[in-house]
């Protein structure tokens, strides 16, 4: 297994022998990999391979699931995310997440959705909130479409717009890392395009990890790709290498469509 793609970039996030168990069953087994700063890393693999499970371990989402247990280490800038002294809330403020389904808060307006994370930390300054709202919506390429109706409910937007709203909300708190769990799987091709473009623009500012079941998407948006299979990390490499000349036979079989 080649775990070290040649790269001078700084390591932002690193896992060492990370496993996730549901009850007694391991969902992910002993995964060690490095996520590089300001790059896009894609997790690919067939359904049930553990890519989402692994992603959710990176911001302690498993804490919310009864019976889920994580072992091993996950370091962000050298600090262990699972250190008992560390509050998962502070981790999640650093590591934002966008989900498979768009998740606007249905009773909140577009504006309130975007600044929800800021209000949580007690920011009440109206002009600051306005500024962050505009900036985040511009970053997520939604500003032009909603600038005249910021007070309307977030649920009134189309699916693609809702997903960009979810991204804007995640960006508003200026996370260092953004986890995206199949962010385009419930969207039409046009919205998918917008979000892929967005990822390309955002990677200059944040470190992005994207789970996708769409290999073309992984090859289009990512710098590095990790291939998971039945809970194991099979190969982690530069995206160009994975898609042209993978080291592992199973990676090759998967990307050429022989199973999955």
């Amino acid at each position: 297994m080649n775990n070290e793609p040649s790269n001078e970039n700084k390591i932002r996030l690193e896992t060492i022998d990370l496993s996730v168990f549901y009850g007694q069953n391991p969902g992910v087994k002993n995964v060690s990999l490095q996520i590089f700063d300001k790059q896009v890393t894609a997790f690919i693999g067939p359904s049930g391979c553990g890519k989402t499970t692994f992603l959710r371990a990176l911001n302690r989402m498993h804490d919310l699931t009864r019976g889920a247990r994580v072992t091993g280490k996950a370091l962000i800038d050298g600090t262990d995310i699972y250190d008992p002294k560390i509050d998962p809330v502070t981790i999640r403020r650093k590591i934002g997440m966008v989900f498979q389904k768009p998740t606007p808060f249905p009773t909140m307006s577009i504006y309130d959705n975007v600044v929800a994370g800021l209000k949580l930390v007690g920011i009440k300054n109206k002009s600051l909130l306005d500024e962050v709202c505009e900036r985040s919506l511009r970053q997520s390429a939604l500003w032009e479409e909603v600038k005249d109706r910021l007070k309307t409910p977030g649920g009134s937007l189309s699916g693609g717009q809702q997903q960009r709203l979810s991204i804007a909300r995640a960006l508003a708190v200026e996370p260092e890392v953004l986890l995206m769990d199949e962010p385009t799987s419930s969207l039409d091709p046009q919205s998918t395009n917008r979000i892929e473009e967005l990822i390309g623009e955002l990677k200059h500012q944040v470190t992005i990890i994207i789970v996708t079941h769409n290999m073309q998407q992984a090859s289009r948006v990512s710098d590095n790709t990790a291939f998971f299979y039945i809970g194991n990390l099979i190969e982690f490499n530069k995206t160009t290498k994975i898609f042209t000349n993978p080291d592992q036979k199973r990676t090759e079989e998967y990307i050429t469509g022989q199973f999955g």
Partner: peptide, 16 residues
């Protein structure tokens, strides 16, 4: 579950 997770992912505490 997504709604709860979305709030958690923003750094909300249990009560939040």
């Amino acid at each position: 579950k997504e709604q709860r997770e979305a709030a958690s992912a923003l750094g909300a505490t249990k009560w939040e």
